[in-house]
């Protein structure tokens, strides 16, 4: 256990000295970093080179009150069992960010899901087309301002209520 902890500390010190990170936290074996969008992309290449070969997810959080989307990815280093989560924020009005699909193959499908459910464009991802929904014409459903209540009423309950 001690070796791993050491490695994690050394690794995180190296990270801190190289990159502009606004937030930095270590909890157990998870390293959480918050950064700007350029570093978000730069870090992905660096992490891949360091042996973070498994990309667990790319996901979005809708911070509607701040008018921002938080985009993050979580990667894992198998040999030393370290997880790194890198997060960044983009403006809600211009929801686009560079795709990680060339770095981690498995990121492609996660980005496709986020594109469908949050309407965030991942520039460079060639697979952005509907995944789960068919003929969806409304707002992307996982956005906070998608009003599921009126939608469900309108689509599914209207006949019963009238």
């Amino acid at each position: 256990m001690k070796d791993k902890a050491l490695e994690l500390t050394a690794f995180s010190t190296a990270l801190k000295s190289h990159y502009a990170l606004s937030e930095f936290e270590i909890r157990e074996n998870l390293l959480t970093l918050t950064t700007d969008t350029t570093t978000y992309v730069d870090l992905s290449t660096y992490l891949k080179d360091q042996g973070f070969s498994r990309c667990l997810t790319v996901a979005v959080i809708d911070w509607i009150d701040q008018g921002e989307f938080e985009i993050y990815y979580v990667v894992h280093h198998l040999e030393s069992n370290i997880y790194v989560k890198v997060a960044t924020r983009i403006a809600r009005s211009k929801p686009a960010i560079t795709s990680l699909s060339t770095i981690w193959k498995s990121a492609t499908m996660h980005e496709r899901e986020m594109w469908e459910l949050f309407g965030v464009n991942f520039v460079g991802n060639t697979m952005l087309k509907p995944l789960f929904l068919e003929n969806w014409t409304e707002k992307p459903p996982l956005r906070k301002d998608f009003n599921w209540h009126t939608y469900v009423d309108k689509e599914y309950f209207k006949a019963r209520e009238k």
């Binding site: 789960f132 929904l133 459903p141 599921w148 209540h149 469900v152 689509e155 599914y156 309950f157 019963r160």
Partner: peptide, 12 residues
Amino acid sequence: WDSYNTIKDISK
């Protein structure tokens, strides 16, 4: 019951 993607009453 409040999911945007499931049918609520199939007998319709």
